[in-house]
Each structure stands twice: as structure tokens, then as C-alpha cells.
């Protein structure tokens, strides 16, 4: 079994080896390590993508907007790096669509890290595959295949507002149950509690 440290190092060097800058190569090394930690086939996809660079051309998506389209498939690494670099502006957009991206699994870790930066969960749809990226802590998905995902027709990204997953009734009910652990204070104890004897105007 290859260690994550080996994966990081080899991926970084390979990424430089196919022509990315050292700085981007460092990003890719960390990203593939992240994917492999989560059990997603990062290295397999990256290897296939790098092989395809010999015969195919890919579009560099540098300025990301709400709708992004290209006849030539987008490079997931440049698109991901741009996403990370522009996250400050992108976080206020409700939805972002990117059409025609190669090896979209390689785009995913950039979004996972972006989720941590902005402190918001990110929903990612790669065609019919759904991913919920939780602050770079974990990834929830209906996709677990250890396979190469060569292409996505449509990628949809949305930032999820920080909100509860439960309603007020559910909260109130649990709160009520929690009060079963409380003890009624006597008047005497109330008088000697912290701040006793002072007024708020002291």
C-alpha cells in the first residue's frame, strides 16, 4: 500500500513533470492525497488525465462566472485552482454551472478546500452524481465507484447557507428532555451565586 506521503510527493512531481507550475503541482499533490483519504480514486483519475494530455487539448478556465461553457473540455486542475483563488467573489453566487469538464473528480478537492475557506457547505453535482462537501472535513456522496470519470457534461455548484437541519419543534422537544437533568435551586443558593449582591450598573 502506498502511503499518503508517497502519493503527495509523486503526484507533485508528476504534475510538474507534465508542465504545471510548482505552485499548482503542490496543490495537486495535496488534493490527490485528500481524495485518496476519502476513498475516492484520485490517483487513478489523475494518471488517466495526464496520459490524455499527450493527445488532447484542454481549455483553461481562469475567470469563473455563473455560467461557464467551452467547446474544448476544461482542465479540472486550472479550473479548480481558479475556483480556489476566486472563492471570495464566488461565494456570493447562488449557483455556478460549468459545462464540459474533463476528469471532474480532480476538480472536487479544490471545492472541498473552498468549503473550509468560506465556512459553508458546498453542493456539487457532476451530471447525476451528487457530493456534499462539508468544510473539508468529509465528503458525503451517492458516488463511490473506484473508476475513472473521464468527463462531465454539466457541473453544478451551490453554496449552502449555514442553517439547521431540524425545525424549532424538534429543538424544543430535545431541550425539554435536557431539562430533566437540571436541579431546582433554593433561594439561599440563588443569593450566593456569582455576581450576587451587585447590580448591573456597578
Amino acid at each position: 500500500m502506498r502511503s499518503l506521503s508517497e502519493i503527495d510527493t509523486i503526484v507533485k512531481r508528476a504534475s510538474k513533470g507534465v508542465g504545471y507550475s510548482w505552485g499548482i503541482a503542490e496543490e495537486v499533490g495535496k488534493n490527490i492525497k485528500l481524495l485518496e483519504t476519502y476513498g475516492l480514486s484520485g490517483l487513478k483519475n489523475l494518471n488517466d488525465y495526464f496520459n490524455s494530455l499527450k493527445s488532447k487539448k484542454f481549455q483553461h478556465l481562469t475567470h469563473i462566472s455563473t455560467e461557464n461553457q467551452s467547446k474544448i473540455p476544461y482542465c479540472p486542475i486550472i479550473a479548480g485552482t481558479s475556483f480556489l483563488d476566486q472563492i471570495d467573489e464566488l461565494k456570493d453566487l447562488v449557483n455556478i454551472k460549468i459545462e464540459n469538464m474533463s476528469y471532474p473528480i480532480l476538480f472536487l478537492p479544490f471545492l472541498s478546500r473552498a468549503s473550509e475557506i468560506v465556512g459553508k457547505k458546498i453542493s456539487l453535482k457532476i451530471d447525476e452524481k451528487i457530493f456534499l462537501l462539508n468544510f473539508n472535513q468529509n465528503i458525503y456522496s451517492n458516488y463511490f465507484a473506484n473508476e475513472i470519470l473521464k468527463h462531465a457534461d454539466l457541473i453544478q455548484i451551490s453554496f449552502i447557507k449555514n442553517s439547521n437541519t431540524f425545525d424549532q419543534n424538534e429543538w424544543d422537544n430535545l431541550y425539554k428532555l435536557s431539562t430533566n437533568t437540571f436541579v431546582e435551586e433554593t433561594d439561599e443558593l440563588k443569593k450566593s451565586a456569582a455576581g450576587a449582591g451587585l447590580t448591573d450598573n456597578d
Binding site: 507550475s21 505552485g23 496543490e27 481562469t62 481558479s82 480556489l84 483563488d85 476566486q86 471570495d88
Partner: peptide
């Protein structure tokens, strides 16, 4: 982030 778009060779 904007600067890096054209200057990724110095990202490291």
C-alpha cells in the same frame, strides 16, 4: 487570487 491567475509560476 486575481494576481495568481496570470502568475501561477510564482504560486509556490
Amino acid at each position: 487570487g486575481k494576481f495568481l491567475l496570470e502568475n501561477n509560476d510564482l504560486r509556490h
